[in-house]
Design a protein around this nucleic acid. Sequence first.
DNA 1: GACACGTGGCA
DNA 2: TTGCCAAGTGT
Length: 299
Amino acid sequence: MNVTPSAPVKAASVSATLNAWFVANARDLPWRRDGFGAWGILVSEFMLQQTPVNRVIPRLEEWLARWPTPASLAAVPPSEAVRAWSSLGYPRRALWLHAAAVQITQLHGGVVPSDVDDLLALTGIGDYTARAVAAFAYGHRHPVVDTNTRRVIARAIAGAGEPSPPNRGRDLDAMGALLPQSVHEAALFNAAIMELGAVVCTSRSPKCEVCPIRKCCAWRAAGYPEYTGIRKTVQKKFEGSDRQVRGLIMAELRSTHRSVTEAEIATLWPDAAQLQRALASLVADGLAISAEGGHTLPE
DNA sequence: GACACGTGGCA
DNA sequence: TTGCCAAGTGT
């Protein structure tokens, strides 16, 4: 006779198994080193938003060598943050990180807050990053939900090939139900489930044959059914998009400390109307400002 | 809630 | 070559 384990029993089994796997298999990443510090964790989390680990590491190390504290970043103009961001993408994150550094310096005495609500109040920090900093920098017990976590839960627990569209409350509840009571085990588990999603339970071609929880995976038990729910909205084509044109303008602005002229900007893209639209949007976002004879990064 | 927002590696 | 995807957030 089949006996279905009760949900709490399965949760405890999953968390214990994943934690043991993580302790033995975690990648050696800078932000996992002892004493990395809350500021380093926070910077890494900003950089890791939608950007792969391998591209983040060199920029992160340069960043922290130059600005080892929030106050040191807050003391320079945002233009320097945008330059140091280099080609990580989504340069507004550099602006937000700079703004957060100013807020931390002015409102929290230069110490990265540990309270989730205090973190949420900082520019550029949302549900994921606030809990990630509280959990990974301070070891607090909060459910941390990112795209990896959502995918692992969808598969291993719900038996679906992909997660349903994000739902703040439901996602936090689902992770909360798996989270060990022990503060230390909980912090480990938040990292462990993300790691599994990042290196084993990947979006495309998951490595189920080496998965530590394959024996209790609901997706496997169900025969790996195809996902039949609502599809993610497909990312729009980048070639020829406003995003591409914004990127070209930002690269030009980053490349120099002087003002970039209209004539120089005109050489970046053949469609003048699209170019002006992109430039106007960058100004609106605070990533570019009008200056003597052209445009510069925000000083 | 859908959408906009960079960049580059990989299949 | 083209499309998918990567530790999200703000509007």
